[in-house]
Amino acid sequence: MQISGRLELSRRHLLIVGAASLAASSIATPPPAAAQSAPTGAPVMTRVSFDVNGETHQLELDTRTTLLDALREHLHLTGTKKGCDHGQCGACTVIVDGRRINSCLTLAVMHQGDEITTIEGLGTPDGLHPLQAAFIEHDGYQCGYCTPGQICSAVAVLAEVKAGIPSHVTADLNAPLRLTNAELRERMSGNICRCGAYSNIAEAISEVAGRSA
């Protein structure tokens, strides 16, 4: 068990927030360019504990801390990325109790007792997850910033297909699912890649999906 709870507002953090505003501008509503303004009320601290990649962590956090910031700034698991901080890009995708979510749009305090898997928990440099290996083999990235989110999302997509969850492009809601390329692309649409590595990402996932089918 690890205890940590420092509020770190480093220069690096501010730079990340700044970059996030730029990344988001392609979608629906651009967030303001300025960093978040100072709170008027005093910070409210609260305790929460949850498992990350099989390890239990107890944290004392400002209630405002998102799950994303808890992972990155407090647990120093920086594999999960902050792109837009507004649910518009998917860079922050993690798996909570088996389901993929945007860690930027949920509060850490709302995850008491949850089991969280981040990119660090899927594989290691010596023991890659099959999807990690496939992304390398198929060149499923350029800068790599969206990649942890893409891979976490892809892991969950394969489970969703297995569970028979339909998508927008599923032709018949009441027939068995087939994982076509169109299905895959629709299901991965919550992960934006500003480098445009989409076709290689789709190939990497298809290969693993084909193997496990």
Binding site: R99, S153, G190
Partner: peptide, 23 residues
């Protein structure tokens, strides 16, 4: 819902992303 209220399944699946719909 898929069987009897297809319009509702379809509308939900047309919204947001897989990650957002999970929450």
């Amino acid at each position: 819902v898929r069987r009897d209220y297809g319009v509702l399944s379809r509308a939900l699946l047309a919204g947001a992303s897989g990650q957002l719909r999970n929450k």
